[in-house]
Design a binder for these strands. Structure first.
Lengths: 120, 120
DNA sequence: TGAATATATGAACAAGTATTCATATATAGA
DNA sequence: TCTATATATGAATACTTGTTCATATATTCA
């Protein structure tokens, strides 16, 4: 298993292993999409918006006030969240209400939270 | 519940609701840490590394070859993953073997995957 | 129709980040 | 000790991205 040979610039250390792992890798596109998906969670503003929406649907103004940010900033981020199919909206006159559109969000958050708390 | 009043520049639409949600929000630091945690998953290279390590521990060279990237690029990313406590390493001579250091990773990935596949 | 306002959006800017390149460190073997 | 090599790392660069600012759109109400 561990056939050592010149490495890094030309050859491989564990050639069989690499080939074996290569074949078990999901398609590039799937991994790319997965990274794009998690990228959406990788921003404090968006995390805060999602946590707010755990409690209740809210309009853009409400969220902006809650987070102490401009309406524009929130609107831009809601666009990202909607693009990722994490929130949906509902229009009532001039007011647009946003709410969660995914059952996995809470589960994903909880997993992340657990990881963080397991560290000293 | 829906007391409408001038909005956005000065006042709030649903003042009670906002106050209520505000009190249920986790502390800022926790949300920040959570975003930082997910940020680590938000990169294709790191996702690919983690998927590779699902199969087996691997040395830096192996990973670089597997992904068709330079040793330096992989090393930099492994540093990020280690900083997030997602991988650990073990040294054997000159060779450093990396492996997963977290049980939640697979669960988190699966949740993300499910979300993505539920979209047409 | 005209004024007020809730939201959306394009462009610009600043801040963050992934990769590359050059090089340093550390270990094995001669 | 000297060479080879596996990995780490700092600096520079190119690219991405979050926010702001100005403005457009859409809807309500007079």
């Amino acid at each position: 298993m561990t056939e050592k040979s010149p490495c890094c610039d030309i050859t491989i250390i564990h050639e069989e292993l690499v080939e074996q792992v290569r074949q078990s890798m999901p398609p590039e596109e799937a991994l790319f999409n997965l990274a794009e998906f998690f990228k959406v969670f990788g921003d404090t503003t968006r995390i805060r918006i999602l946590y707010a929406l755990f409690q209740s649907e809210m309009c853009v103004c409400d969220i902006a006030h809650l987070l102490g940010m401009t309406q524009s900033a929130i609107s831009h981020q809601l666009r990202v969240l909607k693009g990722a199919k994490l929130v949906r909206n509902r229009k009532e006159g001039r007011v647009v209400y946003y709410s969660l559109d995914d059952d996995h969000i809470k589960a994903i958050f909880d997993q992340g939270y657990q990881h963080i708390q397991e560290q000293d």
